[in-house]
Design a protein around this nucleic acid. Structure first.
Length: 1044
RNA sequence: GCGCGGGUGGUGAAAUGGUAGACACACUAGCCUUAGGAGCUAGCGCCGCAAGGUAUAAGGGUUCAAGUCCCUUCUCGCGCACCA
């Protein structure tokens, strides 16, 4: 540029400049993604899309965005066509909770937050192509989330089942295993997660366990993340061994990775939830067992895994037969065995397993050592470190064999005897995706009643008021209190209730039975029991029921409590009681001691619901609370202004029955594709400060009947937002396609993602799910690759100035808007890159950022040091080895060449921090020698442009240049000339006895002898009177001498 | 307990096995300025006046040469955790 173009000594005004370019880039569509033609080189650069929180941009967001921007701009300058999109992952609980708190619909909050985020991201100067923006809450987007759900369903990878799930009592929803922290709390809400039996949608990610594991090997990802996924998938190779029981029929199957220790098995341990527990427990051990299991159930997941110091268990009294020795093996129940892994049963080898050893010691069980030391050895450690020395003893015909051989032979023998097989086990569980909340993607499924399956509803009424407690039948009485206290008859009211309920329930689905139990005025347990069982038997004779629901009132609930805690309903009728509606609860506080076997009750019923009026004068409300807590219920339905006999709201009850049972005895169907998307209803009830979970919005749920016939109901759960966010990178390719999730051509052109930057917290969630979806799409033949992210890196956390994680409550947050205002976006970007290694956590330093701002100022001032060289191409000539011009120009040229090489390499290896240092060094050098040519300055600006787009664009715009482009981003990356980096002389250093003692400079390509001669001279002081014993020349670097 | 990363000045940090502390921040001294939360110059691991010595969590090893490779220990962070 000519000197006239320079505004000397003008200070860089970042506010004006940045605002100007934000506008211009937008109106000029500078960063619109170009069309890809065959032969074009492409880069798909991706950063995780943010959750648009109301707080707006965080300095942490700038880190991945800037890194992506640097790479994207770098490759664009290098002639690549780049796709660099951004969008919003907007479904989720924070918005819903905020909506409830503030009474603003989530739709509105979301749009406002997105708008705000976009403005702020634009201020950062990132080259996102905003025409491709996506928003997961937009029906045009989630239509394809639903389509994906249906694809999985059709491939047998989406299913609904009754399962113990993680229940978050604060956010009132189910969570995926991946969303529960190690200490058993919810990742988001921090609540202690409960285990709840519920009917839930799952994705069968376990089908892909092996592929998810093996395909990790080829990925350019941080090793730690790959390892984390490997651990999460948790593959172990071993064997399933069958142990016969003392009687015909059942066997106990155990999973083991150490089947070569099988001769050391001295007992079996099964989990308290094992299906054979009841059967195996002998009469003598029953009390202890029932007690133990009840205690185990009461323990939360947390307690059960945390209390690993003291193992406990109970002997069942039964024995299994050792498959090879035929010996008797006692069977124990202990809660250190997990139901969810393997078969829920283990063969205990106390001689080689620490847990079994501890257990054997505690309960005085025999120990057999099968390893060569004939003493306790931890098998798992031993085979890792000492595998080859490990040989067997006490193992019959296998004595003396080494680990490897024994493993093989013992397995062969088990297989031969039909008592075992090789099995691979994975720790990975299926992905639970249903969420009982409103602000999520609706699951595109509806249910319709099926005629075959009905529900039996039995009402068990309370007691009547007459009779005496002293009539000789006392022992068998349901409670002592009933006859004294009751003043009302419910045996007469009950049939009326039954009629009322029958009126409002669909007769094709529900059979309501409301009998009058015998002697209600002085009820006897044995009598009621006989009567109750007879009713069920006679109903089952003529009908098949999907579910049996018992509604107990008052004394009726006490009866049920006694019945279910002592009788085996499930076994007797081959059916579980799926719900029990306890209206009015119990008769007295003392009833809670009628039985304390709450565990058994819980094990026999599915869903438990309690209704209790706060104004029940017969049974105080606190009894209801006590009941709920005994049964482990988080909540129950409460009323007020209702007496003991008035608290049945038939409509309410009927709705509850319908919504809880409609799924179990109905047929599920996918919503036809042409009806997608199934749109989330607008919640009209915001003024009340409430948002109904989708499933409780009966207007919505029942609206399915308009399209799919009478009785049709939509699924009331929404999807985990990770479903929405784990396929989004496909939608950027073709965001407005109405016919497909993305067209095959664009997928072919742009996928896979070449560079992905995302936080390490997604290692086992999003990154695993996205890989899973990609493989499913591959299997469906829609794409031709199996891994979505070729290269992935994590950004490190930016900590507060105090070294702590930034948080509002700690008051250590940095507001990026203030930084924009004070220092400008270029400074923020470069500072964040300069802070330290990209993937490491690093504290914000309010002082350090000044150094970066100074750099920008000095670069701005470089315009004054830039002189117009008459030979514009003198640099070019220099590259060819014909060096003209002043010495300073040659010095700078060489530095610039080095810089060009270094910046390119460092961008490609994510070493952004050293890039900034290199820029600083270069600027120092320019100031030292006094200036640089305009052509050198131009190339420098191009190198700097990915890091500081605003200031470089501004200076460029003032350049006088032939063939000037509308934007510096359209310039070409300078190529360095390797020959320019070769010096004519080389500096050597000289070491004597390993210590640096001197240095010298010498022409390149000198013979070694000459180099040594000069080297000796340069350190003559250290060689006096000494004999040189060793001499080594490292060409171009150093001479190492060893003297006596 | 297992797995994966780290540990270098007052601070953030550099360093294909080859002059440890580049580059910056802070600090100190000086200059300039009406003033400065501006700019410029110089210094800045530790010991020492200096020559020099000595330093990359600790100890050992390999090597002409180790922050870097190997072994042991300590320590911090992350992940998994009674996974049979």
């Amino acid at each position: 540029m000519t000197s006239s173009a320079i505004q000397k000594n003008s200070k860089y005004n970042h506010r004006e400049t940045e605002a100007k370019w934000v506008k211009q880039w937008e109106s000029n569509q500078t960063y619109k993604t170009p069309e890809l033609k065959t032969g074009d080189k492409k880069k798909y650069i991706l950063e995780a899309f943010p959750y648009p929180s109301g707080d707006g941009l965080h300095v942490g967001h700038a880190l991945p965005s800037t890194a992506g921007d640097i790479t994207s701009r770098y490759y664009r300058l290098k002639g690549y066509k780049t796709l660099h999109p951004m969008g919003f992952d907007a479904f989720g609980l924070p918005t819903e909770n905020f909506a409830i708190k503030k009474g603003i619909p989530p739709q509105q909050t979301t749009l406002e937050s997105i708008k705000n985020f976009k403005v702020q991201l634009k201020k950062l100067g990132v080259d996102y192509d905003w025409t491709r923006q996506i928003n997961t809450t937009d029906p045009n987007y989630y239509k394809w989330t639903q389509w994906l759900f249906q694809l999985l369903y059709k491939r047998g990878l989406a299913y609904k089942k009754e399962a113990l799930v993680n229940w978050d009592p604060i956010d009132k929803t189910v969570l995926a295993n991946e969303q529960v922290t190690k200490d058993g709390t919810a990742e988001r809400s921090g609540a202690i997660v409960e285990q709840k039996l519920m009917s839930q949608w799952f994705f069968k990610i376990t089908d892909y366990a092996e592929r998810l594991l093996t395909d990790l090997d080829g990925l350019d990802w941080p090793e730690s993340t790959k390892q984390m996924q490997r651990n999460w998938i948790g593959k172990s190779d071993g064997a399933e061994v069958e142990f016969q029981l003392g009687y015909e029929g059942d066997t106990i199957r155990v999973f083991t990775t150490a089947h070569d220790t099988i001769y050391g098995v001295t007992f079996l341990v099964i989990s308290p939830e094992h299906t054979l527990v009841a059967q195996l427990t002998t009469e003598d051990n029953k009390t202890a067992m029932v007690d133990y299991i009840a205690k185990a159930k009461q323990k939360s997941q947390l307690e059960r895994t945390d209390l690993n110091k003291d193992k406990s268990g109970v002997f069942t009294g039964s024995y299994a037969i050792h498959p090879l020795t035929g010996g008797q093996i006692p069977i124990w129940v202990a809660d250190y065995v997990l139901t969810s892994y393997g078969t829920g049963a283990v063969m205990a080898v106390p001689g080689e397993d620490e847990r079994d050893y501890e257990f054997a010691n505690k309960y005085d069980l025999p120990v057999i050592y099968t390893n060569h030391t004939n003493s306790f050895v931890s098998y798992s450690k031993e085979i890792k470190t000492n595998k080859d020395k490990y040989t067997l003893i006490n193992s019959g015909e296998f004595d003396g064999l080494t680990y490897t051989v024994a493993r093989e032979k013992i397995l062969d023998k088990l297989i031969e005897h039909n008592q075992g097989k090789a099995v691979t086990n994975y720790r990975l569980r299926d992905w639970s995706i249903g969420r009982q909340r409103y602000w999520g993607c609706p699951i595109p499924v509806y249910y319709k009643p099926s005629n075959q399956s009905k529900v039996l509803v039995i009402m068990v009424h309370g007691g009547d008021s007459t009779g005496s407690s002293e009539d000789g039948r006392q022992d068998d009485k349901i409670t002592d209190r009933i006859v004294e206290k009751n003043q009302y008859s419910t045996s007469k009211g009950c049939p009326v209730w039954g009629e009322n309920l029958d009126k409002v329930l669909d007769k094709e689905i529900f059979d309501v039975v409301a009998p009058v139990f015998p002697n209600a005025e002085n009820a006897l347990y044995s009598e009621w029991k006989r009567f109750f069982e007879q009713i069920i038997e006679s109903q089952l004779k003529n009908n098949q029921y999907q579910d049996i629901v018992v509604i107990g009132h008052s004394l009726g609930t006490v009866f049920l409590q006694m019945y279910l805690s002592s009788e085996d309903f499930n076994e007797r009728f081959g059916q579980k009681l799926s719900i029990i509606q306890l209206v009015g609860c119990c008769e007295s506080e003392g009833d809670f001691e009628v039985t304390d076997n709450w565990a058994k009750i819980k094990s026999q019923v599915g869903l438990i619901k309690i209704h209790h009026s706060q104004d029940d004068s017969v049974c105080p409300f606190k009894w209801g609370q006590l009941y709920a807590s005994k049964l482990g219920l988080a909540s129950f339905d409460t009323y007020s202004n209702k007496g003991h006999f008035e608290q049945v709201n038939f409509e309410e009850l009927a709705n509850q029955l319908r919504s809880n049972f409609v799924g179990a005895k109905t047929v599920e169907s996918l919503i036809p594709e042409q009806d997608l998307p199934l749109v989330l209803p607008n919640d009209a009830n915001m003024t009340s400060g409430k948002i109904k979970p989708l499933g409780e919005n009966l207007d919505f749920v029942n609206s399915a009947n308009k399209l799919y016939g009478d009785g049709a109901q939509y699924e009331g759960d929404t999807m985990d937002s990770f479903v929405c966010s784990s396929w989004y990178f496909f939608r950027y390719l073709d965001p407005s396609n109405v016919a497909k999730f993305a067209s095959s051509e664009t997928i072919k052109q742009w996928m896979a993602v070449d560079q992905y930057v995302i936080g390490a917290e997604h290692s086992t969630l999003h990154l695993l799910y996205a890989r899973f979806f990609t493989k499913v799409l591959f299997d469906e033949g829609l794409i031709d690759f199996v891994e979505p992210f070729v290269q992935m890196r994590h950004q490190g956390l930016i900590l507060g100035p105090d070294g702590q994680k930034m948080s509002k409550s700690k008051g250590n947050t940095i507001n990026p808007l203030e930084v924009f205002e004070q220092y400008g976006a270029d400074t923020l970007r470069m500072y964040e890159m300069f802070m330290g290694p990209f993937d490491q956590p690093k504290p914000w330093n309010t002082d350090s950022i000044k150094g970066v701002r100074r750099l920008i100022e000095r670069i701005w001032a470089m315009q004054d040091r830039c002189y117009y060289s008459s030979a514009v191409d003198s640099a070019r000539l220099s590259q060819l080895g014909i060096i003209h011009g002043p010495k300073s120009e040659r010095t700078i040229e060489k530095e610039l060449q080095k810089l060009t090489k270094k910046i390119g390499e460092d961008i490609e290896s994510y070493s952004f921090n050293t890039c900034i240092s290199e820029f600083m060094k270069f600027v120092n050098k320019v100031e030292e020698v006094g200036g640089l040519t305009n052509y050198q300055f131009l190339r420098f600006l191009i190198l700097l442009h990915p890091f500081a787009p605003f200031v470089t664009e501004e200076i460029y715009s003032q350049f006088e240049l032939p063939n000037k482009k509308p934007s510096i981003s359209m310039e070409q990356w300078p190529e360095f000339e390797a020959q320019m980096l070769v010096d004519t002389t080389i500096k050597y250093m000289v070491q004597v006895n390993g210590k640096v003692r001197g240095e010298f400079e010498i022409e390149t390509n000198m013979p070694e002898a000459a180099v040594i001669a000069v080297a000796k001279e340069s350190v003559s002081k250290w060689l006096e009177d000494k004999e040189i014993k060793f001499c080594k020349v490292v060409t171009g670097k150093l001479v190492s001498l060893v003297v006596s």
